[in-house]
Amino acid sequence: MGSVQNKRILFSLLTVITVMLSSCKADSKCEFIAIFNFGDSNSDTGGFWAAFPAQSGPWGMTYFKKPAGRASDGRLIIDFLAESLGIPFLSPYLQSIGSNFRHGANFATLASTVLLPNTSLFVSGISPFSLAIQLNQLKQFKVRVDEYHSSDQSGLHILPPINVFRKSLYTFYIGQNDFTSNLASIGVDGVKQYLPQVISQIAGTIKEIYGIGGRTFLVLNLAPVGCYPAILTGYTHTNSDLDKFGCLIPVNKAVKYYNALLEKALFKTRTELKNATIIYLDTHKILLDLFHHPKSYGMKHGIKACCGYGGHPYNFNQKLFCGTTKVIGNSSVKAKACRDPQNYVSWDGIHATEAANRHISTAILDGLISYPSFALNYLCPSV
C-alpha cells in the first residue's frame, strides 16, 4: 500500500513539474519578435557600405557568394541569432533600398566606437556612427513606428508592431575599436585609462533603452584581440610578450581587465532596472579557445588570416588589407582569400570567419557562455 501511495505522490510531482516546465516554455517561446543591434564591424550587416558604397572582393564568399556588407566570408553572430528566432537577417538602419524593418533594425557600422570620436583620443578612420548616434537612431525609429501606427498606414505592414520595443532582443557587440584604435600609439596602460568610460556609456545606453520599453539585453564582451593578426603585426613586442600559442600576453590581460569591468557594470545595472534581463555573453572564452586550439573545433589555423598577404605566420600586412592590390617593389601584389576559410579562425586578420562565428553562436544559443543563464535554443526553438 505504501508503495502504491509513493508512486502516486511521485506521479503527482512529475505532473506538476511537467506542467510548470511546459508553461514556462510556452510563455517564453518565440517571445522575441525582433532584434535591435548596436555594434561595429563584428555585427555590421551592411550599414557602413550603405553609407559609403565600395565593398568588393572576396567578402561573403562562403554563404552569400558575393559581398554582402559583412566583414567576413559569410554569416556573423547576429545572423545566426536572427536565424534562431526564425526572422530574416537584420537590415541595416542606413540602408534605404530593400530593407525590412518588421523584425528590428541593425544600427552597427564598421569602425564604430562606444565613445564619441571627438571626445576621445581616436585616430582617423573611425566611423561617425558611435554608440550615442546609434541610440539616437533607435529613438528616431521608435518615433516613426509610433507615428506609423497612429496613422491609416498601419495596414501596410512595413514596420513592426507597436509593442515591438518590449518584445525584442537588444544586442551589443561594440567596444573593440575603442580598445584597439590607440593601442599602437599609447600602449596598453594608456588604453586602460579610458576603458571605464566605455563601459559606463554601454550601461547608460541600456538604461535609456529600458526607458523606452526595452527589457532584454545581450552584451557580448571583448574578443582576445591579442590573438588577432592585425594586432600581432601592428603592436611592438618581443617574443617574451607572446604566450605559447603566439598571442600577445599584455594585450589579452588588458582585455580581461575590460571584460571584468563590463561584467561588474552589467551586474550593477541589472540590480537597478526592475524586470530587466541583462545578459553578459563571454564570447571571449570561445574565441580564445578557437585561437589556442583550432584543431579541437575541426579547424587548422588560429592566428593566421585566411584573406591577406604575407604568408606565415600571420598572412597579414598592415599596408595591404584583404582584397586590395598594391605595387610592392616592381610587382603588383594582391591580398587574396584562401580557398578553405572553414579551416581558419581569422578571416582578414581583424574579423572572424563564418566558421568561427558559428561556434561562438552555438555557445550563445545553448546558454553555455551566458551570465546569468540564458539559452535562446530553449526559449525560442527554431520553427
Rank of each mutant, 00 (worst) to 15 (best):
M1W: 11
Q5Y: 14
K7D: 10
K7S: 11
I9P: 05
L10M: 12
F11W: 10
T18F: 15
M20G: 10
D27W: 10
C30K: 11
D40G: 09
S41V: 00
N42V: 02
S43G: 14
D44R: 00
F48Q: 08
W49S: 15
A50G: 11
W59N: 08
F64M: 02
R70N: 06
A71E: 00
G74D: 05
F80M: 09
F80W: 09
S91P: 01
S96E: 15
S96V: 07
R102G: 06
F107R: 06
L110V: 10
S112R: 00
S124I: 11
S130N: 13
L131A: 06
A132L: 05
F141D: 01
S154P: 04
L159A: 03
I174S: 06
G175Q: 00
Q176C: 08
D178E: 08
S181N: 12
L183S: 00
S185Q: 15
G187K: 11
V191K: 01
Q193N: 10
Q197P: 01
I209A: 07
Y210W: 07
L222D: 01
D243R: 07
K244A: 15
K244T: 14
G246I: 01
N259W: 01
L261S: 12
T269R: 00
N275H: 14
T277G: 08
I278A: 13
L287D: 02
F291R: 02
H293A: 09
P294I: 02
S296A: 14
Y297G: 01
K300I: 03
G308D: 03
G310K: 08
H312D: 15
N315M: 05
F316G: 02
K319L: 11
L320W: 05
C322F: 06
T324N: 13
T325V: 10
I328R: 13
N330F: 11
S331I: 09
Q342L: 13
N343M: 11
Y344S: 07
Y344T: 03
A352V: 01
T353S: 06
T353C: 03
A355H: 07
A355D: 03
A356T: 03
A356L: 07
A363K: 11
G367Y: 03
I369H: 12
Y371I: 12
Y371L: 12
P372K: 08
V383H: 14
